[in-house]
């Protein structure tokens, strides 16, 4: 097939599967039906059955990929809308985000290194609690593999919403600030969707935590990677 037609076909396939899976998720609202998980799996299945290589798929896929950059810039808008909440709770939110990012980086590196995993894997795992588009860029910068990073980010997100509620209850984290920060700083967008089940304020805090984690993580992940001799 001509490259142009192939590109159009893979764009249509991706968007179509995404919309269908999103409808399914909106109807049933089970976390495992999140389109990021289901649509990705279906496309992987499609590629393996049709024997199409990833590079061939990306002839179309890269056009969708290009919207990641502006979408990250767009995170500034909810952050700006929540500026009152942010500035009224500046200390708890800033310190909480910083604590989360630093604990995530330190435990991620030390645990994975002590188990003898390669530097490439450790670097891919490092930005796991940061929203996928930013995590992929960070991973690439510190010598990791972006698509592995994206999958690790997804695993962290699901950990946050599956085990998170019990952890938060056990630690008596029950204020809007505590809950929102817990979900947003550890489980990014997936956690923010979960925080909405607690309330609008929890979700707002979580979305602020997610955006700030992405900013702090971009500064600190390369620094920690360097400190622990990954780069």
């Amino acid at each position: 097939m001509q490259p142009f037609l192939l590109a159009v076909f893979f764009i249509a396939l991706t968007v179509g599967i995404y919309f269908f899976m999103n409808l399914l998720y909106l109807k049933f609202h089970y976390s495992v039906l999140m389109p990021a998980l289901t649509a990705t799996s279906l496309i992987i299945l499609f590629l393996s059955f049709t024997d199409v290589s990833y590079n061939a798929y990306m002839v179309g896929g890269e056009w969708i990929d290009r919207l990641l950059g502006p979408a990250v810039v767009a995170l500034a808008i909810p952050l700006y809308k929540q500026r009152k909440l942010l500035f009224e709770n500046l200390m708890p939110i800033f310190t909480g985000t910083l604590a989360g990012v630093m604990i995530g980086l330190t435990t991620g590196i030390t645990l994975a290194k002590s188990l003898g995993f390669s530097d490439v894997l450790v670097s891919s795992l490092l930005p796991k609690s940061i929203t996928s588009p930013v995590a992929m860029e960070i991973a690439e910068q510190i010598g990791g593999i972006p698509s592995l990073a994206a999958v690790f980010v997804m695993i962290a997100g699901f950990t946050g919403i599956i085990i998170g509620p019990a952890v938060l209850r056990l630690l008596h984290i029950d204020t809007a600030i505590g809950l929102g920060m817990g979900y947003g700083a550890s489980a990014h967008g997936i956690g923010t969707a979960k925080a909405l089940e607690y309330g609008a304020r929890e979700a707002s805090v979580s979305s602020v935590a997610m955006s700030l984690s992405a900013i702090f993580g971009s500064f600190l992940a390369p620094l920690f990677a360097w400190l622990f001799h990954l780069i």
Binding site: V15, A36, I44, L47, Y54, M58, A71, P133, A150
Partner: peptide, 14 residues
Amino acid sequence: FLPLFFIPATVGIV
């Protein structure tokens, strides 16, 4: 639509 945009990169896991 953010989840849609990171599907292609995530598929790279294959």
